[in-house]
């Protein structure tokens, strides 16, 4: 039995190690892939910016998570960098100037419940900017793998 669990664990870790890492250098490689026109579905870079502003609007209304972002400081800068990041994971041709997700969240002790709260804010923002649920899920697919870097507790 122990042997079985070890085999499963090793197989699992190999598979995780083989999957692309996230240094924010390009579109997130998902299965199946994110739509090639995902940024356009969001209404281009301006639309992505609107979505990120909506995201922060809902984050700041959620007492489970707003303090984390407030303590991080400079919300305008966070919105600016997140707009770059979202375009990038959707396949947009931009450069991301912020820190890696792992570095940015290493000391924050983010829980899965808090991460999920941001996901809920993400869906709320999609609805607020009249984005289809299908387009919204392109972004959810692109950001979902960051869970490993962000949730540290």
């Amino acid at each position: 039995m122990k042997q079985l669990f070890r085999t499963i664990a090793i197989t699992f870790m190999l598979c995780v190690a083989a999957s692309p890492s996230f240094s924010q250098t390009g579109k997130t490689g998902t299965y199946p892939p994110i739509d090639s026109d995902a940024v356009e579905q969001f209404g281009g870079p301006e639309g992505v910016r609107n979505w990120v502003e909506g995201l922060f609007y809902y984050i700041m209304l959620d007492n489970r998570i707003n303090h984390v972002f407030r303590e991080f400081g400079n919300i305008e800068r966070q919105i600016y960098l997140n707009t770059q990041l979202v375009q990038l994971v959707l396949g947009g041709d931009v450069e991301y100037q912020g820190a890696s997700m792992a570095a940015a969240h290493a000391d924050l002790g983010i829980t899965l419940t808090q991460f999920n709260a941001v996901v809920e804010a993400a869906y709320n923002s999609c609805e607020r900017i009249q984005l289809t649920y299908e387009a919204c899920n392109q972004l959810i697919a692109g950001l979902a793998p960051y869970k490993h870097a962000i949730v540290t507790r």
Binding site: F12, C15, V16, S19, T28, Y31, G142, A144, K147, H148
Partner: peptide, 12 residues
Amino acid sequence: FGEAIYDSDNFI
């Protein structure tokens, strides 16, 4: 094992 929701970057 595995993650049904967030591991969109692999097939596991």
